[in-house]
Simulated scan of single mutants.
Amino acid sequence: MRAARGFTMIEVLVALAIVAVALAASLRAVGSLASAQTELHQRLLAGWSADNTLAQMRLTHAWPEVGEQSFDCSQGSLTLMCTARVTATPNPVFRRVEVSVTMPGRGGNLAQMVAVVPNETSRSL
């Protein structure tokens, strides 16, 4: 009598379990990549908002008042809040400006930039 050839039911179930674990791991990896991509996109837009705020100060030659000011700095469909903190420096001709960008409902800063702004209003030509 010849032995039957082929796979037993146990072997098929073990193979299916291995494939299921591999698929679950790959789905989790894809989910992590999508989440990281969203975070990166938000941080990129927040960086642009902070850079835009500092560039606007430089281009208008504005001499910012010492203190803190918060304002909307949304990019596209992403709602963002910028906070500009202006502090004096040892040299009275310069002020330090720190711009932090946050997203309402989410803790922590998405971006933060610092610049030193000169007082160009009293500069002689």
Rank of each mutant, 00 (worst) to 15 (best):
L13N: 03
G76S: 03
L110C: 09
A50F: 11
E11D: 01
C73N: 09
L16I: 08
P104I: 01
M113V: 15
A34M: 10
Q42K: 13
A115G: 08
T121A: 07
S122V: 11
A25D: 04
A55G: 01
R2C: 05
R2V: 13
V30D: 00
G108A: 00
R5Y: 02
L45V: 10
E39F: 02
T53K: 12
E68D: 07
V86I: 15
G67Q: 13
D51G: 14
A36Y: 06
V12I: 15
A50G: 14
L45H: 02
A29C: 05
L44F: 01
L23V: 09
S49V: 06
R96K: 14
T79S: 13
P118I: 14
A84G: 04
N91G: 02
D51T: 15
S70Q: 08
F7Y: 11
Q37F: 00
M57V: 06
P64Y: 06
A46D: 09
F71L: 15
A62S: 08
R95W: 08
R43E: 02
V99D: 04
G105H: 11
G31L: 12
N52Y: 02
A4Y: 14
S74F: 15
T87R: 06
A34R: 14
C73H: 13
S32T: 14
L16E: 01
T79K: 13
T60S: 11
N91P: 05
L40P: 00
V30S: 07
M57G: 02
Q75C: 09
V21H: 10
M9Q: 01
G67L: 13
M81V: 15
F94G: 11
R5P: 05
A88T: 11
L110M: 07
Q69S: 09
P118H: 11
D51V: 12
R58G: 00
A55Q: 11
S74K: 10
N91H: 06
W63R: 07
G105P: 12
W48R: 13
C82K: 08
R5I: 02
R123W: 02
A50D: 06
P104A: 00
V101Q: 04
M1H: 13
V101Y: 05
V97G: 00
G76L: 09
A62T: 12
A46I: 15
V93K: 13
G108R: 02
T121W: 06
G105N: 06
T38P: 04
Q56G: 05
H61F: 10
Q42L: 15
Q37V: 00
L45D: 00
A36W: 02
E68G: 10
A4P: 14
A62H: 08
E65S: 11
V99F: 07
L27R: 05
A3E: 10
I10H: 03
V93S: 10
